Computed example of a mutant assay.
Amino acid sequence: MALITISGYPSSGKSRRASQIKAHLETRLADQSYDGPKLKVSVISDDTLDVGRDAYGDSKSEKPARGALFTAMQRQMGQDTILIVDGLNYIKGFRYQMYCAAREHKLRVCTVYVVATHDLCREWNSTRTDDRAYKTETLENLLVRFEEPSSMVRWDSPLFIILWEEEDVPADEIWKAITAGNVKAPHAGTQVVEKAPMDALHTLEHTTTSIVSSIMTSQASSSLGGPTILAISATLKLNITLPARNITLSELQRYKRQFVTVHKKAITLGSTEKGTVDWDEENVAKKFVDYLEERMKP
């Protein structure tokens, strides 16, 4: 349904804002006037994943921490869920990665930037007594490295900025963004590609070989050129129009190699054509016959 990305300095009050947003959304969903689909609101964070603040002390431990958050996010994404990701999310490349995952699942998105001054973050971090405080060196490093969200880039938009002095979140605007905002379709970089079946390569090679053999057999037993019926297998026969000349085996083998090379790439990488590509014997045979008719000249 939707992904809400929380971003902000360490110890800036992000979890408080995430809780406020969750409470507002659940109230609206429970209201009698709400007549939309049944939805649940979920929050994931370092705390829910048991990722300690010391994970951000160096790059070696920080990378798997971000990976755990991203994996949990992907696992909970769905059309029945409003997912709030409560984390630092301070690297724009990581926010872009989250945005791409949301597009792949056809979710609406928005970003909430929780703003507090450096001094306030230091103060609030020093007063924590729940074992969730950052070490001073780690805190200072994260403050310097923070990459601020921007409404000018698509992966941070729509962007809602909440200052430390504000009592509540812009619930109406967030609600509108996640229930009435545009759903951006997946593009080639994020779209799940349909893979070919396991026996596609065998079918491709076997079918094209059978067609080459059938053409050579037909040519040896009948007059040259014109409409010809190819017996590709016991159950499959196709029509082909052959040129009025002798077609050599080397010529057919060349066309076969070209055809197989192109379609091997499609099988390996997934469909490269519009729509679904069928890899059964009949469809492969029809494609190869069309390919030959286009290339064999009189």
Rank of each mutant, 00 (worst) to 15 (best):
A2V: 09
R257G: 01
T27I: 11
T235N: 12
R17C: 05
L204C: 08
A244G: 02
E293P: 08
I211L: 11
A68M: 13
V192E: 09
N283A: 01
Y113T: 00
V43L: 07
R53I: 09
E251I: 05
G57Y: 04
I229H: 00
S59T: 11
L39G: 12
S42A: 13
V109N: 07
P298F: 13
V114G: 07
K22F: 03
P170R: 08
M216Q: 08
G270N: 04
D46W: 00
G87S: 11
P64Y: 13
G226S: 11
D35T: 15
L142W: 07
W175A: 04
L163W: 10
R257F: 05
I229C: 01
V183G: 11
T235M: 09
D58T: 04
T235P: 02
R95G: 00
G93E: 03
Y113L: 04
F288D: 06
V109H: 11
L224Y: 14
Y291C: 02
K237C: 05
G226M: 12
V193T: 10
D31F: 00
H118Q: 13
E205L: 15
Q258C: 04
L25R: 09
G52C: 06
E281G: 04
M73D: 02
V51M: 04
Y255N: 01
E137A: 15
T129L: 14
E173C: 06
M77G: 04
V112C: 02
V260N: 10
G78D: 09
S157A: 15
Q74S: 15
I162W: 03
L25D: 06
R145H: 07
I21S: 04
I84R: 08
K22L: 06
A116I: 04
L88P: 00
Y291I: 01
H206T: 07
G93Q: 01
T136R: 14
M1I: 06
R257I: 03
D119G: 00
S11P: 08
S223E: 07
C110N: 00
T127A: 13
L29N: 06
A2N: 09
D156V: 06
Y34N: 08
A116Q: 08
P158N: 10
G225C: 15
T5W: 01
S250K: 03
T241F: 14
K63A: 10
E26A: 15
K195H: 11
G8H: 08
V85Y: 04
E281F: 03
I91A: 05
P10C: 09
W175Q: 08
P10Q: 09
L224E: 10
C110R: 00
S11A: 14
H105L: 11
D50Y: 09
